[in-house]
Amino acid sequence: MSGRQVTCYQYPTCGTCRSAVKQLKELGWEVDPVHIKETPPSVETLKEWIHQSGLEIKKWFNTSGEAYKEMQLKDKLPHMSDEEKIRLLASNGMLIKRPVVVGGKRVTVGYKPEHYQEVWGR
């Protein structure tokens, strides 16, 4: 045990999530998986993570997901306040781009191997 632990909010059948977890483990992290659909992060937690990530709220949406498309969010998001967007994300884990990896002050959304190397490889 390295004592280096991250929490990974993921969807277990998501291939991208599995690749992310595999890379995190290769980089020496112990991964605590959380099923994002069954246990979505709260509004307060999302506010903190969004701030820590430095990303715009719209980057947190899973734009290729069924829920996003069914709710026609492409057209609705531009007219919503930040608070409304965060509440929406907290209400349905499937709207959140995954995986979300949290460790200390670091937060990443989505998965790009080179970005993981940069953020989690140190």
Score class of each variant (00 low, 15 high):
residue 80 M to I: 11
residue 122 R to Q: 06
residue 51 H to D: 09
residue 79 H to P: 02
residue 43 V to W: 08
residue 12 P to T: 14
residue 48 E to S: 14
residue 14 C to I: 10
residue 88 L to W: 03
residue 92 N to L: 14
residue 40 P to H: 10
residue 69 K to N: 10
residue 11 Y to T: 09
residue 76 K to M: 11
residue 45 T to M: 14
residue 2 S to G: 08
residue 94 M to Q: 12
residue 28 G to E: 02
residue 86 I to N: 01
residue 114 E to K: 15
residue 44 E to T: 08
residue 97 K to S: 07
residue 51 H to S: 13
residue 15 G to H: 06
residue 41 P to R: 14
residue 79 H to M: 12
residue 87 R to E: 11
residue 1 M to D: 06
residue 41 P to C: 11
residue 50 I to N: 02
residue 121 G to Y: 04
residue 119 V to F: 02
residue 35 H to I: 09
residue 23 Q to H: 08
residue 66 E to N: 05
residue 25 K to W: 00
residue 72 Q to A: 15
residue 12 P to E: 12
residue 94 M to P: 02
residue 104 G to N: 13
residue 107 V to N: 11
residue 28 G to S: 05
residue 113 P to W: 00
residue 41 P to K: 05
residue 93 G to N: 14
residue 74 K to N: 09
residue 106 R to K: 15
residue 102 V to H: 02
residue 19 S to I: 11
residue 45 T to R: 14
residue 70 E to I: 09
residue 37 K to W: 09
residue 15 G to L: 11
residue 15 G to N: 14
residue 79 H to Q: 13
residue 28 G to L: 07
residue 52 Q to W: 15
residue 43 V to A: 05
residue 56 E to F: 05
residue 78 P to F: 01
residue 3 G to F: 01
residue 30 E to K: 08
residue 31 V to G: 00
residue 62 N to V: 11
residue 95 L to K: 05
residue 71 M to K: 14
residue 49 W to C: 09
residue 111 Y to P: 01
residue 23 Q to S: 06
residue 10 Q to R: 12
residue 13 T to A: 08
residue 2 S to A: 10
residue 24 L to Q: 03
residue 45 T to P: 02
residue 120 W to S: 05
residue 44 E to A: 12
residue 9 Y to P: 01
residue 86 I to A: 01
residue 113 P to H: 02
residue 64 S to G: 11
residue 60 W to N: 00
residue 18 R to Y: 08
residue 82 D to C: 01
residue 22 K to C: 03
residue 87 R to S: 05
residue 18 R to P: 04
residue 39 T to Y: 13
residue 78 P to L: 15
residue 98 R to F: 07
residue 15 G to K: 11
residue 54 G to C: 07
residue 51 H to G: 04
residue 122 R to H: 12
residue 73 L to I: 05
residue 57 I to M: 03
residue 31 V to F: 01
residue 54 G to N: 05
residue 121 G to F: 04
residue 30 E to I: 10
residue 52 Q to S: 12
residue 29 W to A: 00
residue 87 R to V: 02
residue 118 E to C: 02
residue 76 K to P: 01
residue 36 I to R: 03
residue 58 K to G: 00
residue 31 V to T: 04
residue 69 K to T: 13
residue 81 S to D: 08
residue 85 K to L: 03
residue 122 R to G: 10
residue 16 T to E: 05
residue 53 S to N: 07
residue 62 N to A: 13
residue 17 C to N: 10
residue 11 Y to D: 04
residue 3 G to C: 04
residue 117 Q to F: 08
residue 90 A to K: 00
residue 117 Q to H: 13
residue 63 T to R: 13
